[in-house]
Amino acid sequence: MTMFATSETVQIIDDAENLAHMIICSELGEQYRYFYHILKNDREAQQVISEFVKAKDQFEDVQRFGKYHPDYAKIRKEMRDRKLVLDMNENITNFKKVERALQKLLDEVSVIIAHEVSTFIKVPTGNPFFEQSCSSGGGCATGGSCGCKTR
């Protein structure tokens, strides 16, 4: 199906851009940019991140062989130690906290928009809280036979 630009589709795109601008200008958007800037300019945090990524890459390489790799336990411990240092860094923690909050907001907005169109639209949020559960096991494409609210 070819979609032609109509005044209605242009208005929808404008409204989407306005919504994005509202999110960017929100307190949460401001916090995200603030903590992002702090994190990017924190040399110590960048070093911690770099060391963790290296340890994680090493672990992924040896994980293919599992406990049979001669350095598996040593590299796994190194990665866990680097992860602990990463989690203890205040600037990294602050950024991750606001990043999760912003992701939650974006997930909520996506679900609201999708379900206003149809409850059958699946939104890949990656968050089980937003997944619709259906006791029939047939998913929400059963036409409401599972007890889901349908439009």
Rank of each mutant, 00 (worst) to 15 (best):
V98I: 11
I49L: 08
F120V: 01
V62Y: 04
K56I: 07
V117N: 07
R80N: 15
S136P: 00
Y34R: 15
F35G: 04
D42M: 09
P124V: 02
K67N: 12
K56F: 13
K54I: 06
Q31E: 14
K74N: 14
L102P: 09
Q132C: 04
R76Q: 14
R100V: 07
A141E: 09
K74T: 15
G66R: 06
R64F: 07
S110L: 10
E27Q: 14
I49P: 03
E27W: 09
F130Q: 00
R100F: 10
Q31P: 03
P124F: 08
S26E: 12
Y34E: 14
K104A: 07
Q46G: 14
F59Q: 01
E108F: 06
S118M: 12
A73M: 15
H115Y: 04
V123D: 05
A45C: 08
C140F: 00
E30C: 11
H37V: 02
L86K: 13
E90P: 03
R43I: 14
Y34G: 01
N41I: 05
L105R: 09
K54V: 12
Q31V: 04
S118R: 13
K77V: 08
E30A: 10
G144T: 00
D87S: 11
R76K: 15
A101G: 02
A101T: 11
T93E: 14
P124W: 05
E116Q: 13
M88N: 06
I113E: 07
V53I: 15
A55P: 10
T119R: 07
V48K: 06
K56Q: 15
F130W: 08
I113D: 09
V117H: 11
Q103I: 06
C140V: 01
Q58N: 12
E27L: 10
L102C: 08
K122L: 04
L105S: 07
F65G: 02
E27S: 11
V123C: 07
I113M: 13
F59H: 04
E131F: 04
N41P: 01
E78K: 14
I75G: 10
Y36I: 03
I38G: 06
K56L: 08
S50G: 05
Q31F: 06
C134I: 02
K74H: 10
F52C: 03
H115K: 05
R33I: 02
I38L: 12
A45Q: 01
S136Y: 00
L28K: 12
K77N: 15
C140S: 01
A73Y: 15
I92R: 01
S26F: 06
E131N: 03
A45D: 04
C134A: 01
A73F: 15
I38S: 02
L28N: 09
S26G: 10
Y32E: 05
I92S: 05
Y32D: 03
Y36N: 14
V117P: 01
A141Y: 06
G144K: 00
I49A: 00
V85M: 12
V109L: 05
H115D: 02
K96A: 13
Y32P: 03
L106I: 04
I92C: 02
Q47G: 11
C134F: 00
R76A: 13
V109P: 00
Y34F: 13
T119A: 08
D107H: 09
C134L: 01
E30K: 11
A55K: 04
K54N: 11
E27A: 11
F129H: 13
V109Q: 04
R82D: 04
H37A: 10
D42V: 08
F59T: 02
L106A: 04
G143N: 02
